[in-house]
Amino acid sequence: SEHYTFDGEEQAIRFMRDMEAKNLKYELQIHNGKYIIQVD
């Protein structure tokens, strides 16, 4: 699995939509205002 970190919500949402379009599962965590997305 890989981790991707985003500072902004818009970037994170765009990335998650992209993952959904590719049928990839992901998990979102928010730490200290950063959006951390783990992709299986």
Rank of each mutant, 00 (worst) to 15 (best):
S1R: 13
T5H: 12
H3R: 14
H31P: 00
K34M: 10
M16S: 01
I30A: 03
A12Y: 05
A21L: 11
L24P: 01
D7A: 07
Y35P: 01
E20D: 13
A12I: 02
D18H: 09
T5P: 02
H31F: 11
M16I: 11
I13Y: 09
D40P: 12
L24S: 04
Y35C: 02
D7Q: 05
R14P: 04
N23G: 15
G8V: 14
I36T: 07
N32Q: 08
K22E: 06
Y26N: 01
E27N: 11
N23C: 14
N32G: 08
K34L: 10
I37H: 00
L28V: 12
E9A: 10
Y4G: 01
F6M: 03
I37P: 00
M16Y: 01
E2Y: 14
F15P: 01
S1D: 10
F15V: 06
I30H: 05
L24W: 06
G8R: 12
E9W: 15
N23V: 02
I13G: 05
Q11H: 07
A21N: 09
A21F: 08
G8N: 15
R14T: 06
I13K: 11
E9D: 04
F6P: 01
Q11N: 08
D40I: 15
L24G: 04
K22I: 07
D7G: 04
K25A: 09
K34E: 05
M19D: 01
N23S: 08
S1F: 13
Q29G: 04
E2V: 14
Q29D: 08
H3D: 07
L24Y: 08
Q38T: 15
I36F: 10
D7M: 07
T5V: 14
I30G: 01
G8D: 15
G33V: 00
N23H: 10
H3P: 07
E2F: 14
Q38K: 14
G8Y: 14
E20Q: 08
I37G: 01
M16F: 02
M16E: 02
Q38D: 07
F6V: 02
A21H: 08
D7E: 10
E10R: 04
N32I: 03
Y4C: 15
Y26R: 00
R17Q: 13
D7Y: 10
E10D: 10
Q11M: 10
I13P: 01
D40V: 15
I37L: 05
F6W: 02
N23Y: 06
E10K: 05
E10C: 14
E9S: 06
D40G: 12
D7H: 07
E10I: 05
Q38P: 00
I36D: 04
I37C: 03
F15E: 02
G33S: 03
A12Q: 00
A12T: 03
E27L: 11
S1G: 12
D18R: 07
Y35F: 11
L28Q: 02
K25D: 06
D7K: 04
E10M: 06
H3W: 15
Q38F: 15
D18G: 05
T5R: 05
A21E: 11
V39A: 03
G33K: 03
D18N: 07
S1V: 13
K25H: 13
Q11F: 06
H3N: 10
E10W: 08
I36Y: 12
T5D: 05
L28E: 01
L24A: 06
Y4Q: 02
H3I: 15
F6C: 08
D18I: 11
G33H: 05
Y26T: 09
E2S: 13
I36E: 07
R14G: 08
R14H: 08
A12H: 01
S1N: 12
A12D: 01
I13V: 09
N23W: 04
N32H: 07
R14V: 07
T5I: 14
N23L: 06
T5G: 03
I36Q: 05
G8T: 15
L28D: 01
M19W: 03
Y35G: 00
G33W: 01
E9R: 08
D40H: 14
D7W: 09
Y35V: 03
H3E: 12
E27D: 09
Q11V: 06
K34I: 11
S1T: 12
M16A: 06
V39G: 02
A12M: 05
H3V: 15
I37D: 00
I30D: 02
R14W: 04
K25V: 08
Y26K: 00
E10Y: 06
A21M: 11
Y26D: 01
E9L: 15
Y26E: 00
M19Y: 03
Y35I: 06
E20Y: 04
D7N: 06
I30E: 05
R14C: 15
G33Q: 04
K22N: 09
D18W: 14
H3G: 07
I13T: 09
R17T: 09
I30R: 04
V39N: 01
K25T: 10
V39C: 03
H31G: 04
K22Q: 11
E20H: 06
G8M: 13
V39K: 02
I36R: 04
I36P: 00
A12K: 02
M19G: 02
I36N: 04
K22T: 04
I37K: 00
R17W: 07
N32T: 03
L28S: 03
F15W: 04
G33R: 02
Y4N: 02
R14I: 11
T5N: 04
E2Q: 13
Q29A: 09
H31K: 13
M16C: 09
K34G: 03
E20I: 08
E10Q: 08
E2N: 13
H3T: 15
K22A: 09
Q38E: 09
R17C: 14
I30F: 10
L28Y: 08
E2P: 11
Y4I: 07
T5Y: 13
R17D: 08
